[in-house]
């Protein structure tokens, strides 16, 4: 590892991934956990991949990292949406401290 910017990006990326994992443990229900997991893990992973690109430059490995970055950015929110929707359809209730659930209210209509 020679590029200081790459080292910085990868370090910060790992810290964000770690925060996402901490969110998975601390937050109460599946929806809140998805929030933490999606946001932190998307940026964390993207930063690690971008750091990899900076380290390897325009070589076969570096370009692959860059393409993975774009795919992670596109697929991770879609996956989170699918998981949240699936959980709600199969009847997972929101945490008892939640303020409102407009989707549950509209289901009967």
């Amino acid at each position: 590892m020679s590029n200081p910017v790459a080292i910085f990006l990868i370090t910060v990326g790992v810290i964000f991934d770690l925060l996402g994992c901490l969110g998975l443990i601390r937050l109460p229900d599946v929806y809140n956990r998805l929030q933490a997991a999606t946001k932190s893990v998307t940026l964390g992973t993207c930063m690690i991949l971008f750091g990899t690109f900076l380290e390897f430059g325009f070589t076969s490995g570096g370009i692959k990292a860059l393409i993975c970055l774009i795919f992670v950015l596109l697929t991770s929110p879609t996956a989170a949406h699918a998981l949240a929707r699936g959980s709600h359809i199969s009847g997972f209730k929101l945490w008892e401290g939640s303020k409102m659930d407009k989707l549950e209210e509209d289901k009967g209509k």
Binding site: R26, L27, P28, D29, Y31, N32, L94, W95, G97, S98, K99, M100, D101, K102, L103, E104, D106
Partner: peptide, 10 residues
């Protein structure tokens, strides 16, 4: 103190 007040809005 975990500052959250979650819910689903439309």
């Amino acid at each position: 103190s975990l500052p959250i007040a979650p819910g689903i809005v439309k």
